[in-house]
Amino acid sequence: MGRPAVTLSEAERRLLDEYQRGLPLDPRPFARVAERLGISERQVLDRLQRLQDIGVVSRVGPVFRPNRVGVSTLAALAVPPDSLAQVADVVSAFAEVNHNYEREHDYNLWFVVTARDAVQLEQVLETIAARTGLEPLNLPMLEDYYIDLGFRLQWT
């Protein structure tokens, strides 16, 4: 099995299960959430803060549809294994790079570049190529077949 997950309270699990979407557009959204969970608004805020502090939640807010605000692409580099950490640091240093992962493949470094427009995106990829001496695969999304309902968690 995977490593044990952090221990979460019932209220925290319900926050993760039920509020990946549909945060109320009410002046007191967390009070509305609290009513449904049967706890106080203060407790909801404290739980969410804790989930953020321990890194289970990256933020409470919007998930944007790709390529609606600015443009983005998935890129990959085939990095010699010995210099992977070093090249990863070069890539991560770009503010335009949000996800950056090592994956098991000859193309072993995968990252998402987001920019305001296609010109800036191209510049970032060219700069990465120049600084690393490696040619990125540029794989922009052409079509999205997934309807994002949030991630379905299994607690068992």
């Binding site: 969410l48 919007p62 998930v63 944007f64 549809r65 605000v69």
Partner: peptide, 10 residues
Amino acid sequence: VIKRLGVVVR
């Protein structure tokens, strides 16, 4: 433009 508004899990 926004797909969903809520808790973003890692």
